[in-house]
Design a protein around this nucleic acid. Structure first.
Lengths: 222, 222
DNA sequence: TAAATAAATGAATAAATATTCATTTGTATT
DNA sequence: AATACAAATGAATATTTATTCATTTATTTA
């Protein structure tokens, strides 16, 4: 029986349909849920450490403290583990970001909060950060049709910049498509550097200087 | 016999030393060199299309028009193919970039030329662009001790920004470490987007608006 | 408590593919 | 032309590891 849980707490049976749920309805059985998440997190740790390719099912199972075969009761195959890991993390992180960006009416504050949230969540979940940043190819292969992760993020930025233009605090002559990528790319670059430095320093402290750069650029002014 | 060539035209014997070179000294034998580069480029094409992991030696050999075994006369193993591909491309591209950045005394022009060169070279070699951007993990695994590719690039940026500060055209209150990553990250982001769009539009045209963003930011001014 | 059902196990299997190497083909030397 | 050496071949091998499934263990139901 192949089962999958989701971040919102509801889970579903992938292969055999909900009809096969046992009569006692384990939808909220906390033990099962725990086991699922411990496998997901174990997978995240192993993927982050070795990369998707060099990670083996045996290692993931060992890290989660279950038998190899057990993995296949919860996931369709190895790809599916990565897919579910990413879905779970993406849903979680975007929810946070959405709230952060909505926390103010002022576009510059929105931007600052979004960036701060981004840096904070990645700092607090380095496995996720590593996987997002180094399994780029798999991300594309796994959800080629779906709009990818950055797409959603770029939409936040579109809103923010357009708001800022209306408010008269951001330039109207911007090439919006480029400006968005300029912002996203540089946050990612900063996170990459932090990962390369093995997460040694405080990432969130970069938020304010970064937003200052977005707003004011590097040109000297009187 | 395991042989390796380098971008500068000199090559060396990896396993058995130069003593094993045949008497006729084939160092400049153009046929052999051609075969080596056709294998490198074939590998690049296959890696870009399928990713390192899903690329097989057989496919690379087929694409290069040689037998599987021949690959192992020129490369130690699969990893070594990627490693040599990257070394070759990196050397080539950094040479171009160095010249671009040196082409003017004015820091803003230096920056503009560097960015333009970066975009141009990646646009003209999409396989390379794809591999640089999606084999992040392998890049780290292959040269963990060596300063990685971005390190060299960041050094160019340090020079440029420091020059700009001396010239009084760039802010002196910049957090340099961050400003550099801000620039590199956003160029990479722009290239990523271009790759995702399958290289459909002109990447080099992004150079000027991008430098404008670096210099002036997105804030509205009177 | 016994029977029935669900969950977990891990050794065995199957498939993929990197790498080897005995043999063949090509090239230079005398 | 005959010999020696270099390069290339590709079928066979070896290894790795994802996945399966017959069996065992745990839990629920009657």
């Amino acid at each position: 029986m192949i089962v999958a849980f989701h971040g919102n707490g509801i889970y579903y049976f992938k292969e055999y349909g909900v009809g096969r749920l046992n009569k006692n309805n384990q939808r909220n059985n906390p033990k099962k849920k725990d086991k699922y998440y411990s496998m997901l997190n174990a997978a995240g740790a192993v993927f982050a450490r070795l990369g998707f390719h060099k990670a083996t099912i045996s290692l993931i199972a060992a890290e989660a403290g279950v038998a190899d075969g057990t993995i296949y009761l919860y996931f369709k195959n190895k790809d599916d583990i990565l897919y579910q890991f990413l879905s779970y993390k993406t849903a979680y992180v975007f929810d946070k970001m959405r709230k952060a960006a909505a926390s103010s009416d002022d576009a510059e504050v929105k931007l600052r909060n979004l960036i701060r949230c981004h840096l904070k969540e990645f700092q607090e979940d380095k496995d996720m950060a590593v996987i997002f940043h180094s399994e780029v190819r798999n991300l594309r292969d796994l959800e080629p049709q779906t709009k990818n992760i950055s797409k959603i993020y770029l939409d936040f930025l579109t809103d923010i910049i357009e708001t800022g233009q209306v408010q008269g605090i951001m330039r109207r002559d911007l090439y919006l498509g480029l400006a968005k990528r300029f912002v996203l790319g540089s946050v990612e670059g900063v996170i990459n550097t932090w990962i390369a430095a093995d997460g040694k320093y405080d990432l969130v402290a970069m938020a304010d200087p970064l937003v200052d750069l977005y707003m004011n650029g590097i040109k000297h002014r009187e």
